[in-house]
Nucleic acid binder design. Structure first.
Lengths: 97, 97
DNA sequence: CTACATTGTCTTCGAACGACGACAATCGCG
DNA sequence: CGCGATTGTCGTCGTTCGAAGACAATGTAG
């Protein structure tokens, strides 16, 4: 998932939080921040403190990586990973009752 | 490049800045921040403002992406995200000659 | 080595932070 | 639908922010 804006980040945080079945208070406890901070960051708060952002990501088992924009723009096909359709179909079947 | 701490980020910013042949004043101008802010972020300032961080990365043609840490740990496949099978199959068909 | 360029550090000041408590609004389940 | 759970918003307060200017310390090229 590509991050361009604070709102991108906030939405990603919310998505992962819900995926993990946590509420905002749970996550706040894990990250060592106040609940209102979680509310604010999920809404795209641009002036949030970087260190707290990184801590919150760690609390959600998310990791950030950085890519040189030139590389990403320069190789249209070589960065696609082979797709294992069978494994994906199997996983999807396992998810459906 | 994996980012865990504000210092990781700051060192990455400095590295890219030097790679692009910019000094701190140049980068500050591009990112719309003061030079001292660049000094501080490069040294790993944890309380820096997220929005300014993202702007600085954009000024350096760097992009951030986020990965689910569980996937990154190399689990075999049962942690795949909820998936739109039809979209994946379509994309795979488009890839096959 | 010297001179210039670059980076690092300090001060000031109005704005905003994050934590905490509390109430309002919305959501989701039975 | 009702009700409890969750999210959103507001106010307060001590702390820190970032911009701007300026000087110190370090780096680099000739």
């Amino acid at each position: 998932m590509h991050l361009r804006t604070p709102l991108d980040l906030g939405l990603a945080i919310r998505q992962q939080r819900r995926r993990l079945g946590l509420n905002q208070t749970d996550l706040a406890g894990r990250a060592g921040v106040g609940r209102q901070w979680i509310v604010a960051i999920e809404q795209g708060k641009a002036r949030a403190e970087l260190g707290l952002v990184l801590r919150t990501l760690a609390a959600l088992d998310l990791s950030l990586s950085m890519d040189d924009g030139v590389e990403a723009a320069g190789s249209p096909g070589l960065h696609l990973e082979p797709i294992d359709i069978d494994a994906i179909v199997e996983a999807a079947r396992a998810r459906r009752p």
